[in-house]
Design a protein around this nucleic acid. Structure first.
Length: 505
RNA sequence: GGCCCGUUCGUCUAGGGGUUAGGACACGUCCCUUUCACGGAUGAAACACGGGUUCGAUUCCCGUACGGGCUACCA
């Protein structure tokens, strides 16, 4: 029988969850759902010095907004493997147990070197022109650890409470080969791998030990993470192997990085491409910086995750706009790209535009009404719905509706100068005064009657420029369907605007 | 520097020993439209370079270049 598919998203609460992390969560979620498995949220809070209050809740809120909800884990209900915070799991002695097993098997050792001593070692090695200074099979022989110190002294040091760490004993020269679902086989020589710290001097495990222990204990079948983890994967293979768990280790999938839109390099939270890097507004308590979120920028979560899914993955056909269910049905790690993808703000906006157009005018009105009210604008619902119908084709975001058509709500005070300069002439004033009179005589005020009246006026009084009528009534050179707009504005308002414009020009 | 990973239009990508190298975003042109858009059509635009292997390489192999990642008692 196949093992139940279980994937976890395991962020550390050291700050806001940025979009790269969201994508990692998304891919894991899609795969889990596709195979009817579990998606788990585990909090990797083993670094007490970098703990940021609020970060954990932010991660939970972000996943909820995106619709990437774990069915197990912190904030989503404990499952059979609780607790899901590593700091709490540490209290159960779980990591130490595995570390002790490695020590007993001769694959890990105690090291008593102080930070100063380690620093000294690196400087010494650099001075000796060693290309890659590291704590390894060669250099550990000159350091203070349970491999170099007499057994009774090691015992004495530990008993007297001298701070120490536990390090992985990496062999000097051995090929380490592992398989990645996205990248295929990767081979690294152990001489390039350092003796990673497994247990820190404060008793906390490092990521390297903790994630392995938890993935095993939580029966994780696929470990998905960013490409930046690829270089440490060989260490992890060794840990599984020395623990005798190589046959139970999850399959690895290292995702390509999301790159900056301009230039090169990894997308950072401070990127200034004009689009947010975080799903929700994030206030960083460490430096009192505020970062805007996709949500607050007017993005719909469906558009956001659709865009994210297509960054480094594709369904193998030309589909781009895909619902969450379609993403789930089509997803596979085999179709994830190996190379990094530059984040494209323009395309990202386009995704939101597509989803915007799928919304009904009523739904859009629901979203726009509070934004209008915030500006002190109160209109009846029918007006707002019609406003949405007319303006939506020009917009990428709900929150730009107002700016695309302020003339729906306020009469113009200035008139597009380019259009006036080009089209306004001596006869214009008289022609449009006559048109205003014609409009005034209309018994029915709707799109059709306005259209007909405009046509009739031309045969009666002469050629009228429609864009001029637009500028006179809205002030702007462009906008939605003019007669629809004037119909919505109403007879009184339209004529008042026309007269006002004629008096100024 | 060392190690690892990568490289198809400006960007996201499909494809893969023999193709007019396909799609999308953005851009240009045209059509529709007395306004503004949407829409439709269309155009320009790519296999990093050099060696192999092969009848034939963009595709497979090796180098080079370029890009990225990692190089902590951080994840």
């Amino acid at each position: 029988m196949e093992k139940r598919v279980r994937l976890r998203f395991a962020p550390s609460p050291t700050g806001g969850l940025h979009m790269g992390g969201v994508r990692t969560a998304l891919f894991s979620y899609l795969y889990a759902k596709k195979h009817g498995g579990d998606f788990v949220l585990r909090i990797e809070d083993t670094d007490q010095t970098r703990f940021v209050p609020g970060a954990e809740q932010y991660i939970i809120d972000s996943l909820k907004w995106c619709g990437i909800e774990p069915n197990e884990g912190v904030g989503f209900g404990d499952g059979p493997y609780a607790p899901y915070r590593q700091s709490e799991r540490k209290e159960q002695g779980i990591y130490k147990k595995y570390a002790d097993q490695l020590i007993a098997g001769g694959h890990a050792y105690y090291a008593f070197d102080t930070p100063e001593e380690l620093d000294e070692m690196r400087k010494r090695l650099e001075a000796a022109k060693v290309v890659a200074p590291q704590y390894n099979a060669v250099t550990r022989q000159n350091m203070r650890n349970s491999l170099t110190l007499p057994e009774d002294e090691v015992k004495k040091l530990i008993e007297s409470g001298v701070p120490h760490v536990v390090r992985l004993k990496v062999p000097r020269n051995e090929e380490i080969r592992f398989h990645d679902i996205i990248r295929g086989w990767v081979t690294v020589n152990s001489s390039q791998v350092d003796d990673k710290v497994l247990l820190k001097s404060d008793g906390m495990p490092t990521y390297h030990l903790a994630h392995i222990v938890d993935d095993i204990e939580m029966k994780i079948t696929h470990a998905v993470r960013g490409e930046e983890w690829l270089p440490s994967a060989p260490s992890h293979i060794l840990i599984y192997r020395y623990l005798g768990l190589e046959d139970q280790m999850p399959q690895l999938a290292h995702l390509p990085l999301i790159l900056k839109p301009d230039g090169n390099g990894k997308l950072s939270k401070r990127d200034k491409s004009g689009l947010p890097m975080f799903p929700l507004n994030w206030h960083d308590p460490r430096d009192q910086t505020d970062y805007v979120g996709y949500k607050e920028s007017g993005f719909m979560p469906e558009a956001f995750i659709n865009m994210l899914a297509l960054l480094g993955w594709n369904p193998g056909d030309n589909r781009e706009i895909m619902s969450k269910q379609e993403l789930i049905d089509s997803f596979s790690f085999e179709r994830v790209n190996k190379s990094g993808a530059k984040f494209d703000p323009e395309k990202t906006k386009w995704f939101n535009q597509q989803y915007l157009r799928m919304q009904s005018d009523e739904q859009l009105a629901d979203a726009v009404t509070p934004l209008l009210e915030a500006k002190g604008i109160k209109k009846d619902r029918a007006f707002v719905i019609e406003f949405c119908r007319l303006i939506k084709e020009k917009a990428h975001f709900v929150n730009e509706f107002y700016d695309l058509g302020p003339f729906f709500f306020v009469a113009p005070t200035s008139y597009d100068e380019k259009v006036i300069a080009k089209k306004w002439n001596e006869s214009s004033k008289e022609l449009f005064t006559k048109l205003a009179a014609k409009f005034e005589g209309l018994a029915v005020w709707d799109t059709h009657s306005l259209h007909d009246a405009f046509q009739e006026a031309q045969t009666e009084i002469g050629k009228l420029d429609m864009q001029l009528l637009r500028v006179l009534t809205t002030g702007a050179a462009g906008g939605p369907q003019l007669f629809d707009l004037l119909a919505l504005l109403g007879k009184e308002e339209t004529i008042s605007r026309l007269k006002s414009a004629l008096s100024k020009l």
